[in-house]
Write a protein that binds this DNA or RNA. Structure first.
Lengths: 219, 219
DNA sequence: TCCTTTCCGTTGTAAATACAACCGAACTGT
DNA sequence: ACAGTTCGGTTGTATTTACAACGGAAAGGA
């Protein structure tokens, strides 16, 4: 667990907290570290969750398969990102999605109750962690709204353009790299892969953008 | 402002706080009450927001019109509901959506900074309000994920079924009432109204459901 | 190197959707 | 009672998408 303290220090959850203080807080927050092999399920749809999670190592996808095997990808989790925060409320039901390891991964589990209940003097920075979590959830909220914006577009082209241009804004450059391959991007935007591939090539031919693998340039 | 204290008492934000304590907290939270006429914009896409809002009276829609006038409705806000919480983080950008009054409405504005910075002894229940807000955001988060689930369905029928069955679960009855008329429901699910209307009738003919205006029965 | 697998572009067809237009019923205000 | 408006169902057509299938390029392993 100790080895990942520097990683935790760089997360939004522990922003402003020193490594020593993080170490001291771990037990107070009920921290556990679990490792997963590539392909493992970190969380399963339908389970109940009483923890807030932080990815220490690896890559994860939040996804969901429906009855007919149709997969939809809700998002991508990189190192240091928080997830599971949608289920901190006591009455929140079971998980709506699966979380799957794309690579061998390590995940911190923090007990929700112990995170949000600021304890006494023992950990001085607990209040700051709560506020950090607050902002993190709020930001996740915003990014979900953003994704709903892509999804509300009627055509594949509009979905692609709104997603790519938002990424360009986020990465502050017309050259962008996305965390998805074609199939995954199609699953993320809930469209057919071949139709999307087709549309991408049309847009390239029309001079709207260029791409190679998962790197795009908007023109 | 006083007249709406009983309303506030029943909101999730002030759950567990008595009317007297709420009254005492109002100034501490930087509360302001603003009224809106039917059709007024409560918030506009692109603005910056430094408040958390609670609807005291009326009905609101969260919506967005794109360049071509295509409207998409992100959700419906009823009395006592919190909104604007997606923008509490200091670095969160501008509003992604409009919020529009469907009826004459009254809205409480609470200063974000003053809400999340627990003050001293003056207001005993401030900590509880922060935790309530925490749960509320987390729950909103969950409902956004839920909506993404509807939206990720490929066909109009699947979108309708996932939405309606989720509402049935939420309202705990096969008889459900929705806060949208046909056009609004279509905007909510991001589909064409006539196509949706068509699909609804087909589903009724197949015996999947019955409906009249905005009341539905799942079979 | 060879074999296997993954990735991605392409194509054709069937299915679903968007769009526009129309109509009747219900509701509104005068 | 009347005109004007909203609402919801219906229909036809053009457009878009889903699905299945194929093939070549690239990547990975033995």
């Amino acid at each position: 667990m100790k080895e990942f303290i520097p990683v935790l220090k760089r997360t939004k959850l522990f922003a402003g907290v020193g490594e020593d203080d993080i170490t001291a807080m771990l037990s107070c927050l009920g921290a556990r570290l679990r490792t997963f092999k590539k392909g493992d399920y970190v969380l399963r749809q339908g389970e109940h969750l009483g923890d807030i999670l932080v990815l220490a190592e690896g890559k994860l996808h939040i996804q969901r398969d429906d009855y007919w095997g149709n997969r939809s990808i809700l998002g991508h989790i990189g190192i240091g990102e928080i997830f599971g925060e949608a289920y901190v409320a006591p009455e929140s039901g079971t998980l709506l999605n699966d979380v799957v390891a794309l690579e061998d991964s390590a995940v911190f589990f923090f007990d929700v109750k112990r995170v949000i209940t600021t304890c006494s003097s023992a950990c001085r920075f607990h209040t700051m962690v709560v506020q950090n979590l607050f902002f993190a959830i709020s930001e996740k909220n915003r990014s979900l709204i953003q994704k709903l914006d892509y999804m509300s577009r009627r055509t594949t082209r509009e979905k692609l353009l709104s997603y790519l241009s938002e990424e360009a804004k986020k990465q502050n450059s017309p050259y962008i790299t996305i965390p998805y391959n074609r199939q995954q991007l199609a699953d993320y935007l809930s469209v057919d892969r071949s139709a999307m591939s087709n549309e991408l090539c049309k847009m390239r031919d029309e001079g709207l953008l260029e791409f190679e693998k998962n790197r795009f340039k908007l023109l």
